[in-house]
């Protein structure tokens, strides 16, 4: 999980890499359902903690990777090499990820962003024309 997130869900992202990350994380999530301990698990056992936490960590990793795969634009720290521009026409909205019981992927919903005092504008770093201006 660590390697997948580091290599494909890090600073520079592509649709291809993110799709691979989602597929591999899904496989890990299926395998995590059969997780076993090597030690006895008795007492405040760190292996037991890790085993109990792992499925939740994988669900969170999938929310991040899947949400990033679907977001076909670049915005803030989400940078897609295949979609280098910010796209306010289609993506000025917030991703909400839900995990229905038994699901293999999160359900993504979107809610509008409330613009308060300042409308989103040029950020002034790098060349990054914005779609929707």
């Amino acid at each position: 999980m660590e390697d997948i997130l580091l290599n494909h869900v890090g600073i520079f992202r592509t649709g291809e890499g993110l799709a691979e990350a989602v597929a591999t994380l899904q496989d890990l999530y299926r395998r995590a359902a059969d997780i076993r301990l090597r030690s006895s698990g008795l007492g405040p056992n760190p292996e037991l903690f890790a085993a109990l936490r792992l499925p939740g960590m994988l669900r969170l990793a999938l929310c991040i990777a899947y949400g990033a795969l679907k977001r076909t634009e670049s915005r803030g720290s989400h940078y897609r090499e295949d979609y280098p521009h910010r796209d306010d026409d289609n993506w000025l909205k917030r991703t909400l990820a839900y995990w229905p019981p038994g699901a293999e992927l999160p359900r993504l919903e979107y809610e509008p962003v409330k613009i308060t005092e300042l409308p989103p504008g040029e950020r002034g770093y790098g060349e990054m024309p914005i779609r929707g201006d």
Binding site: L37, S39, E47
Partner: peptide
């Protein structure tokens, strides 16, 4: 802990 003994606290 990762490579030799996962129960080490």
């Amino acid at each position: 802990r990762e490579e030799q003994d996962p129960s080490l606290m």
